Computed example of a mutant assay.
Amino acid sequence: MNRALPGEHAYRELAARDTVMAGLIDLYGTPDPFRWSEAPAVAGGDPLAGLLLHICGQQISIRAALAVYGRLLGLLRGGPSPAALAALTMEQLREVGFSRAKAEGIRDLARRLTDASLSLAALATASDEQAVTALTAVRGIGPWTAQLYLLHQLHRPDVLPAGDVGLRHAAALACQLPRAPSASELTALAEPWRPHRSYATALLWTVLRAHRSERGARGPCLSACGERARGRQSRPAATERGVGCRRHPTPPGGQGLDCYGWRPLK
């Protein structure tokens, strides 16, 4: 099993191997890939609570996921446990906000934990591949949920959730791609980032958050995401480091703007 290297070491190696990563680190620093801001106060360090929160978060916003998770905790009273989960009926799970598919998945998870066909404790010493295989055997847990669990709960250093749409969008921004790569294309693109893909993932998510935040504050973005500002034309040009794209027009009296959220180019 791979052990996480200290963040500085991992980011130094990423910067040495990839000029795009080097530029992003200069712009956005070295985010902690294992920090999940919503989890500590809600799930703490409990592995089952963390897994349930990730299941709640499938295909919905974190705000909605936290609401569903909070209602689920209200049913579990003493906190999540295999026995408490197994005691919940399909109707109770549906009432707290789970879809039928998710409710069936929760019940399957409870059964597997109860009969010991799945051990969350054993995942701590399993390889990444073994842990993903064990988790995806549960109904309703796909690669994305399993990989996020490896990242946030098990703190594995080389996780790339290539199916994550936001991560693929961020890769398009960072690498000046004409469109978001497919999952397989992102996996190939990320090959030089091994064995530190968790760190690269955290960096790309930071890029995406900054992009969305600043775009929301200043208007539409003309970057690799393909959105066009009304009545404006993009003029692609490369930056000195190859990070950013200057696909935005220059505003009246202003400087060029890069594709990471309407930030003045230096």
Rank of each mutant, 00 (worst) to 15 (best):
N2S: 15
R3A: 15
G7W: 07
L14N: 10
L24Q: 03
I25W: 00
L27W: 02
T30I: 03
P33Y: 00
R35N: 07
W36F: 12
S37L: 06
S37G: 02
E38G: 06
D46T: 03
L48W: 07
A49W: 02
L51V: 12
L53P: 12
I60S: 01
I60Q: 03
S61K: 08
A65T: 02
L66I: 14
V68E: 03
L72R: 10
G78P: 08
G79V: 07
G79A: 13
A83S: 15
A84M: 12
A86R: 15
A86M: 08
T89C: 13
E91A: 14
S99H: 07
K102P: 14
A103L: 05
R112L: 04
T114L: 12
T114A: 14
D115V: 12
L118F: 06
S119V: 01
A121H: 11
T125D: 01
S127E: 01
D128E: 11
E129H: 05
E129Y: 02
A134F: 02
P143Y: 00
W144C: 06
A146P: 00
Y149N: 05
Y149S: 13
L150K: 11
L151C: 12
Q153I: 05
P157C: 11
G163A: 15
L177W: 01
S184G: 08
S184C: 00
T187S: 15
T187C: 09
A188Y: 00
R194C: 09
R197I: 06
A200P: 13
A202Q: 06
W205H: 15
L208Y: 05
R212D: 12
E214A: 14
E214Q: 14
G216Y: 00
C221R: 10
R228N: 08
R230Y: 04
R232H: 04
Q233K: 07
Q233H: 07
P236V: 00
P236Q: 00
P236N: 03
A238I: 01
T239Y: 03
T239G: 05
G244H: 06
C245L: 03
R246M: 12
T250Q: 09
Q255H: 05
G256P: 08
L257D: 09
Y260M: 10
G261D: 00
W262T: 04
R263M: 04
R263S: 08
R263T: 10
